[in-house]
């Protein structure tokens, strides 16, 4: 649904651009292709390693280490597993739901989901390429630390 809107907007603007100035449209598309090509190798690498990790870490295994009685130790483990890589939401949440069914705790899952979407160790080289070391390390560390605060509040609110 959202993707349909995106396609609609992108294609209408592209058409508008084409009507107004063919040369500029050509340059836009070349630019788009170059940017895509630039992140393609890393994207392939990330998608492939995520697939490998998801096959190795079965929901049963993860749920066991981050079960609802695993406490802060479980939260730490969940945050570390979540930090390995950045995962798109359409993979992250169905996975979190399966983990919940398998006995993972809310507090632990909160840390897992937060670091899953905000912290990525495998994506560090790509982020560094765009923003440098200081920016990348600071952003990832802050997000990592704050996911514990979020997990703590979740543990107080959701039982």
């Amino acid at each position: 649904m959202q993707t349909t809107i995106f396609y609609g907007v992108a294609l209408s603007l592209l058409l508008l651009s084409f009507i107004k100035d063919r040369q500029k449209t050509r340059r836009s598309l070349v630019k788009a292709w170059k940017s895509f090509q630039n992140i393609l190798p890393q994207m392939l690498g990330m998608i492939t390693s995520i697939g490998l990790l998801l096959a190795l870490l079965s929901p049963a295994v993860i749920s066991e280490v981050i079960g609802s009685s695993s406490g802060w130790w479980g939260v730490l483990l969940a945050a570390v597993i979540g930090s390995i890589t950045l995962i798109p939401a359409f993979v992250a949440f169905p996975m979190a739901a399966i983990l919940l069914e398998n006995g993972a705790g809310y507090m632990q899952l909160s840390a897992f989901v937060s670091t899953l979407t905000m912290v990525g160790v495998i994506t560090l080289p790509l982020e560094i390429r765009f923003f440098g070391k200081k920016f990348t390390i600071l952003r990832n560390s802050l997000a990592f630390a704050l996911s514990f605060v979020v997990a703590f509040v979740i543990s107080k609110v959701v039982h």
Binding site: V9, R27, A32, L54
Partner: peptide, 26 residues
């Protein structure tokens, strides 16, 4: 898993990058 997320990416990304290209030029 790899194939399905790759297909998903190829489906999601074209409009994002087209918009990025238009932004950069226009």
């Amino acid at each position: 898993t790899v194939l399905s997320s790759f297909k998903e990416m190829l489906f999601i990304l074209p409009p994002v990058f087209i918009l990025l290209g238009l932004l950069d030029i226009w």
